[in-house]
């Protein structure tokens, strides 16, 4: 169980949780039917993930396609598209994008804008001939994406999913284990022994700490084999930070279970923390774009730091000195959660 579940999670989530647009359905309404409009349509058609279809003659029909989700965007050419282009050197097209998912909408927009600006350059060259007059000086951007040159979304997700996985295993297992002893009564037998509180909590922590690190190693291997994930940084740094991180997570899990009486309560409370931690941790949405108050709360979120560590070490090859802030924060959180667990554990009711 401890191994099958993580593999499934890795394989399903990393493939599924992607923002890459693999297919954009574009409906074109061409009222102009000119050479230039066909030219631009052909340009869209030339991009593999644009599926240009249904050349509807009316906007109404095209909108229906948008409504029933058969189309992601509509491109409308007005009647005088070519005439305006030739006479005024300027013509307008209309682009209607389904923006239910704002991320996808922005992607469609920027893809389209690129295609159209490319089209512009071409007609200037076609019509005006090679520099009739000196072209205006322009600064051009050439992109070079560092650390993830092909912008492979799986590389971005895999370390994040791994961080979540280690967290879930750590928090649920440690929490459930302790409270289960309360339910079946074995904890009483321990409570009448001279066992020290810290000994008890450490004894509960160590096995899950080892399992957590083992699962991390296991998950990394899978990611490396299946997604070709490059592991640029040192494994020592990664596991060192993961070790500190896990102390915090396990400490929190144990703390919750010292307060709770039943496994249901632990599930409920752990789930609450997990949801907040994961959604605010920066796996899906960048923390930098959250409101300030949310970023302040995130200082207490161990997943936030660990997510950064995972991505920075795996993809960028950052070392401990680059991660000092994370190291210090994770250590403080770890010591705090662990101390809370030891403090709250009661041998005497």
């Amino acid at each position: 169980m401890i191994f099958v579940v993580p593999i499934m999670q890795m394989l399903i989530l990393v493939f599924a949780a992607t923002y890459d647009m693999k297919r954009i359905d574009l409906v074109v309404v061409d009222h102009d039917m000119s050479e230039n409009s066909r030219h631009l349509i052909a340009k869209f058609d030339g991009i593999p993930f644009f599926h240009v279809h249904h050349l509807e003659q009316s906007e109404k029909l095209a909108e229906d396609k948008l409504l029933n989700d058969e189309a992601d965007a509509i491109l409308v050419f007005p009647v005088d598209f070519e005439r305006n282009l030739i006479r005024d050197d300027e013509a307008k097209v209309q682009l209607l994008i389904n923006a239910i998912e704002s991320n996808s909408a922005q992607l469609i927009y920027s893809y389209s804008a690129n295609i159209i600006s490319d089209f512009n350059k071409n007609i200037i060259a076609d019509w005006k001939g090679i520099p009739e007059f000196t072209p205006p000086t322009k600064v051009e951007i050439t992109e070079n994406y560092w650390y993830n040159p092909e912008l492979d979304y799986k590389w971005f997700m895999a370390p994040g999913i791994l961080a979540i996985l280690v967290t879930i295993i750590g928090m649920f297992m440690s929490g459930m284990n302790l409270v289960r002893e309360k339910e079946i009564g074995t904890i009483e037998q321990l409570n009448v022994t001279p066992l020290k509180k810290y000994q008890f909590i450490i004894g509960k922590l160590v096995p899950f700490w080892i399992i957590g690190l083992f699962d991390l190693a296991f998950g990394l291997t899978i990611a490396w084999i299946v997604f070709d994930l490059p592991i640029v940084g040192s494994l020592f740094t990664l596991f060192f930070m993961a070790g500190i991180y896990l102390i915090g997570v396990l400490g929190l899990g144990l703390f919750i279970s010292t307060v709770a009486d039943t496994q249901q309560q632990v599930m409920f409370v752990s789930f609450f923390f997990m949801m907040i931690f994961i959604l605010m941790g920066g796996i899906f949405t960048p923390v930098e774009s959250m409101p300030n108050w949310a970023q302040t709360i995130d200082r207490l979120n161990p997943i936030y730091y660990f997510m950064r560590v995972m991505r920075m070490v795996v993809l960028k090859g950052s070392n401990i000195s680059d991660l000092l802030r994370e190291l210090v924060s994770l250590s403080i959180l770890g010591i705090t959660f662990l101390s809370l667990a030891i403090w709250r554990y009661r041998k005497t009711a």
Binding site: I184, G185, T186, E188, V192, T193, P194
Partner: peptide, 20 residues
């Protein structure tokens, strides 16, 4: 002095509490 007491006593509860 509960911890000192605990060194000197054994306890068997009505609920079986060894690890099954």
């Amino acid at each position: 002095e509960t911890e000192k007491i605990k060194k000197n006593i054994g306890y068997m509860s009505q609920k079986f509490s060894l690890y099954e």
